[in-house]
Design a protein around this nucleic acid. Sequence first.
DNA 1: CGATGCTCTCGACAGGCTGTCGAGGGCGTC
DNA 2: GACGCCCTCGACAGCCTGTCGAGAGCATCG
Lengths: 208, 208
Amino acid sequence: MSTPQRARRAPRPTGEDRQRAIVDAVEDLLRTRPLAEISIDEVAAAAGLSRSAFYFYFGSKQAVLLELLDRMVAEVDARLAALPLPDEPSRDWWRSCLAVFVDVFGAHRAVSVSLAEARATVPELREEWSRRLAGWVDLTTATITAEQRRGRAGAVVDARATSVLLNTMNERAIAASLAGEEPSLPPGSVLDALTDLWCTAVYGTPDP
Amino acid sequence: MSTPQRARRAPRPTGEDRQRAIVDAVEDLLRTRPLAEISIDEVAAAAGLSRSAFYFYFGSKQAVLLELLDRMVAEVDARLAALPLPDEPSRDWWRSCLAVFVDVFGAHRAVSVSLAEARATVPELREEWSRRLAGWVDLTTATITAEQRRGRAGAVVDARATSVLLNTMNERAIAASLAGEEPSLPPGSVLDALTDLWCTAVYGTPDP
DNA sequence: CGATGCTCTCGACAGGCTGTCGAGGGCGTC
DNA sequence: GACGCCCTCGACAGCCTGTCGAGAGCATCG
């Protein structure tokens, strides 16, 4: 919850890289077990400091996860913003959008998987995710609506409902795949399968 | 984890309705907060017994949730089995299948929502859910494949991948709706939206 | 009718984890 | 060389969990 006051660009051993060390340690540990099974002792040890030093930087381990989530969604948004906006979205364009999610979530597997676990108990996490998800839903809705106005997207009944469903599917399907749950899609084929389904949901065919 | 040895059909105050009382108490409490924030003290108090009496019946609060999940999925499977098997699935048939999930999950909102939280930490829960989900995915895949053989289901590239995605979408979309997350679909419109998307994913049009 | 056994209940204990506090330790500055 | 700031530490209190042994009620059997 709390953030450190500041830090000077330290000569050697100190500073805000302690904070970074904590965040990295949590991401490492999350690769081995869920957040609930990670104690702050372990995090502190992995980051090379004492337990109470941890509390100087973060109010809880959940706050660290929130930081991790912030980094991840910021990366998603940055890469989405860098994507070209075509006059008429093609399958390739949709695919490249979806690839952003698949890639970034995959690069932060531990965070993606932990989200579902921690969302129930951490309001800040839930709200932050809601905000970002809402943004992506708006984007999707706008794109679909534009396609409808062009006379395409014939398969869509309710653009907003479709967008919500497709985006929530993304979240869960990618997380399940990364966690290796059964049944789920192997990580290598998630992107193509999602693209097929998104295009079908919008245009009625996987390759419009 | 453990189950009580037995119970006689008690005259008045005793028996296995203690066990039922525990399960019901957990479901009640889950309506107000996530499992992680519920202590066994509270459960025992709500069920009218002492904390260690709780441990006579269940090994942990997670074991109670597993019991709750078992009940719920059993109900789903029972109602799915009662559904007629048509020669050619219509939109109405798909809708009535989806209605089973929407209805039963909705009737056990607390359980549906808690699943995502607890799955990360409770292997038995994860495995049980995987088993059931796999069954529904198989059912979906078989149905789609049959449609493909009939020359319908033209929109489907990979029947299994489509089935996995549609079923995982169901899970998450219904849970989000029941939890009142934002963005999500209002509970009243989930069923129609899901039906539209399932039909579109399979046939290329929401109303085949 | 009393002994035995089973089911079930309880209070108490030990251990682990969390979050907080006050006491400093180094280091730059005046 | 005294002060102040950033940071670190050990210790404490509190909560929750899981386990144990000691029984209470009740049925069955000798």
